[in-house]
Design a protein around this nucleic acid. Sequence first.
DNA 1: GATTGATTTGAACGCATGTTCAGATAAAGC
DNA 2: GCTTTATCTGAACATGCGTTCAAATCAATC
Lengths: 195, 195
Amino acid sequence: MARTQGSHSDITGPRLRDAARSLFARFGYAAVSMRQIAADVGVQAGALYNYTPDKQSLLFDLMKAHMDELLIAYDDAMQSGAPLDQLEQFVSFHIRYHAARPEAVFIAYMELRNLNDENFAEIEALRRSYEARLEDILKAGVADGAFDVSDTRVAAMALIAMLTGVNTWFREGGRLSMDDVEALYWDMVRKSVLC
Amino acid sequence: MARTQGSHSDITGPRLRDAARSLFARFGYAAVSMRQIAADVGVQAGALYNYTPDKQSLLFDLMKAHMDELLIAYDDAMQSGAPLDQLEQFVSFHIRYHAARPEAVFIAYMELRNLNDENFAEIEALRRSYEARLEDILKAGVADGAFDVSDTRVAAMALIAMLTGVNTWFREGGRLSMDDVEALYWDMVRKSVLC
DNA sequence: GATTGATTTGAACGCATGTTCAGATAAAGC
DNA sequence: GCTTTATCTGAACATGCGTTCAAATCAATC
């Protein structure tokens, strides 16, 4: 039953998640210790266990929150329209949403193998759900003759890989603006699915 | 000065690299111990240090060998031709070469952050060298009017990300053959760079 | 068959790991 | 101002880490 100056549950909790996200992204889940995270938060390691049952849950919660928020943001952002319009919306949303949170995206892609079986299955289902949204757009475009795509599943995987790749090189303040990047990628995506 | 049954330097050395490659790919560099690798090789941990100065070198050597072999194989495989022909060769080579060695590819992409600064710089230079080969093809295509690509650097990054993504989902014996995959990706790549 | 030299063992080093928990401390409620 | 309760400390636990090295063992050479 102890406590130090100005520390509260509603402060330490988010701080813990922020520190874990930042450190996991930079050094990797396995290479980061609970003591490092605690030092970043400004508490001793034992205090973290008031906010997470264990290290594994910390990783899972970060990834789960990221995927949940991704799906909610996507469904919120999308407006109805022709498949080509929807595809353009997807490209814009995906690039911008992912570029805005590189740490969470990096973790979601790199730390899958550090999830236990149960947690992995849950995250993987969310990822497939997101991929399915793109594939549905492609299917609609094929159905109404707007797209020339012979395998919508492969095309969806290819496009998502291409778009997510932006995060590996794009840096704010570099040669290209976010608008430039979006335009360049949309140009390639558009042409790749048209006849 | 000890030795056990049927163990030789020219057997244990490659075995060490194979075990490290397999374990690093499956669990990650930081999560794999020298004792785990040794158990996989069939020796005690101490014996590994006859073949590598330390764990870091083990990782670096794997990545360096992978990148060196990639560049040699690429330069060996490529034949002269028009930019569109060269691009097709690149797509075919990249997909097949990477699909054939998923472990080394996985490590080369996932474990960059576990290299020390010096080693990282060396691997990164090799990677940029490979990316430059694709960009050179795109530049040539733009120069002779065959391609409609407004930013060859971005296009190269986008295409490589797309092609490397094959490894995240392709499995031998699945719905699609390697020939199918190559045809599907080439179709998308070709269209994305043409007018 | 003895000698040599390469290879491996097995124990040890100091240090770090995730997690637990009794005790200390400070804010909140009365 | 006293009590309650949430929060944090600090030490401890068993275990594992990368690495080193003297001693042991085996294969090859003479």
